[in-house]
């Protein structure tokens, strides 16, 4: 079952049509390689959480299949899920129980968990997310970030092969976010596959090896983060007080879409046969353009994301 080359999450034609006819997830072909840190991106309402719920057997697909750790879901839920830790659409806790008792309860719900080591497991999980001191506090008195941490602790109760984290850094303070990033890297180093959805793209860029982008229920692209960023060409940016003189020089050298804003001139480098940057700079100087700064700005994942999913702010209905 644990063939290293095999995908840890694999869906084929996975579709969810909610009652009322709305297609939340449309023929999804997703493949998450073992050992990867996989960033699952998409605007609000694009179907990420719905996909995650189907993967975990919480909702029945209307079509297609999902395999988790090589086993079909939801049929093999009982064998597979003890090896999968999950955070789905934020943590959910029993407010009237302490943080520790919450974890004890979730641990007791796993029939494969040994009751004799339950208490140790819970203590270590609390330790791991930095809640050891607050473990005896009632969960209703937790702050948003503390709840999020407790949710993560419940995902880390057992040694897992796969972690599915839906917006794990939601509500965390900067230190908390850093810790989660470090934690995700540590887990990945241990060979655990981490599948995480997030809206924080620089975060995805920092921790993820692979990524996929959803929009309106459809998968637009998936691949390694490096491939994604490379796919979008960077923009040339020149900072100069002589913007008017700079524009014709750049156009002469094949730079397209030249725009000026303030003392910055930016443009697209030609895709085929781009000019040498040094020559371009020399040409600017020869034309008496006083250059303050010059260079190609690498496209961020955010640029790629917006290019793929569109600028609009409104959520698709």
């Amino acid at each position: 079952m644990t063939d290293a080359a095999e995908a840890v999450v694999e869906t084929s034609g996975l579709t969810k049509r909610f009652r009322g006819g709305q297609v939340a997830v449309d023929s999804l072909e997703l493949s998450v390689p073992r050992g990867s840190v996989f960033g699952f991106l998409g605007p609000n309402g694009s179907g990420k959480t719905t996909t995650i719920r189907m993967l975990l057997g919480l909702i029945e697909p209307s079509g297609g299949t999902a395999r988790l750790l090589g086993e079909p879901m939801p049929r093999a839920a009982r064998q597979v899920l003890p090896q999968v830790g999950a955070l789905i659409e934020g943590p959910a806790l029993y407010g009237f129980l302490s943080g520790r008792d919450n974890l004890l309860r979730y641990d007791a719900a796993d029939p494969t968990a040994d009751p004799r080591t339950r208490s140790t497991r819970v203590s270590e999980a609390l330790e791991r997310v930095g809640l050891a001191a607050a473990g005896s506090k009632k969960a209703k008195a937790y702050s948003l970030g503390m709840k999020q941490r407790l949710g993560l602790a419940s995902a880390l109760l057992q040694p897992r092969q796969l972690l599915i984290l839906d917006e794990p850094t939601n509500g965390l303070d900067p230190q908390g976010m850093r810790e989660i990033r470090t934690l995700v890297r540590e887990l990945a180093d241990d060979g655990i596959t981490v599948f995480l959805s997030s809206h924080l793209l620089d975060e995805i860029e920092q921790v993820c090896s692979h990524t996929a982008v959803m929009s309106r229920g459809k998968l637009i692209t998936q691949g390694t983060v490096a491939e994604m960023s490379a796919g979008a060409r960077g923009r040339l940016a020149v900072t100069t007080p002589d913007t008017a003189e700079a524009m014709p020089v750049l156009k002469e050298h094949g730079v397209t879409d030249v725009t000026v804003s303030g003392d910055r001139v930016t443009g697209e480098m030609p895709a085929t046969d781009p000019p040498d940057l040094a020559d371009l700079n020399a040409a600017l100087v020869r034309a008496d353009v006083r250059v303050r700064a010059f260079g190609v700005e690498r496209a961020s994942l955010e640029d790629v994301f917006v290019a793929l999913t569109g600028e609009g702010f409104d959520v698709a209905g």
């Binding site: 644990t2 050992g35 040994d114 497991r121 109760l157 241990d190 060979g191």
Partner: peptide, 28 residues
């Protein structure tokens, strides 16, 4: 019948000895 199967697959997993194991014996 449920007793045996999960143990076997976990032992084969990559994390059995990893630091994520709050108890490698968790499912012994």
């Amino acid at each position: 019948a449920s007793a045996g199967k999960p143990e076997a697959s976990v032992a084969a997993g990559p994390v059995a000895a990893g630091p994520a194991g709050p108890a490698a014996a968790a499912r012994a």
